[in-house]
Design a binder for these strands. Structure first.
Lengths: 127, 127
DNA sequence: CCTCTATATATGTTTTAAACATATATAAGT
DNA sequence: ACTTATATATGTTTAAAACATATATAGAGG
């Protein structure tokens, strides 16, 4: 038993806000991709432990299309189930810059807070 | 008009998850404080723009007490409204270390993602 | 043929931190 | 008296995330 499990802890739930949208925008930067492809690539960024939630991805893609940040087409070439492929719109590319600013702010806040925390735990070996 | 306002953007809402608990634990590290005090100190960390939400603070304090990470007493000394003062329990101190690990993971993920984003925007001047 | 798995998309539901709003009371300043 | 600052507290809404499930095609293996 590492520590208290659920209800009252949560710090290892790793629930983090608003990382999925920018991650998808980033992955669509270099041309057409479909949801299932994103699903396999998203875990690499380390925002979630374990596999990405397909429900979240498909819903986010639809949302991004509704607000004009991506466009989609059906890809019926090849075998298997039809794929709906997405790419960034110009507005989507611009928007990703805004996301970068926003995420930098987050990181900076986290960094400064972590610096404070480090002062509390001087016994920890930091390479 | 900087960019689309609500419904569809949100990246400047700066809604970030799970920063309040560790922030409060940190502020209570060095002894007794009350909620209103925390309210004035929390904005310094940069997790939120503008004043901290007192509702969130008092509810979080109660929650932290329920799960044993802090303890409280009434401070009726001095003038003005009575203050409920809180301090970290030993378990709270231990728990803050877990938070530090968790937040480091977040920051690392953000950092690596931001590095990817930086490659997309080579025209931006970074000092 | 049948079953199992992988590919692919989609919707339904629940949870919960955050955000927003409001209520209450004391004391100090003007 | 009126307003502001101090101090705590609860009620309600929002929305991302988490969890669950449904559907369909195609390939691999027995």
């Amino acid at each position: 038993m590492r520590h208290r499990n659920r209800k009252g802890c949560g710090c290892f739930q790793e629930r983090q806000s608003r990382w999925l949208e920018p991650t998808i925008l980033f992955l669509l930067w270099n041309g057409w991709k479909h949801g299932y492809e994103l699903m396999s690539e998203i875990p690499k960024f380390g925002f979630v432990a374990g596999p990405a939630d397909p429900g979240a991805i498909y819903r986010t893609l639809r949302h991004l299309e509704n607000v004009g940040l991506v466009t989609s087409e059906w890809d019926t070439s090849g075998t298997g189930a039809a794929k709906r492929i997405y790419k960034l719109s110009q507005e989507g590319k611009n928007h990703l810059r805004l996301w970068a600013d926003s995420l930098r702010n987050r990181r900076d806040a986290l960094n400064s807070f972590l610096t404070h925390l480090d002062h509390l735990f001087p016994d920890i070996d930091r390479a």
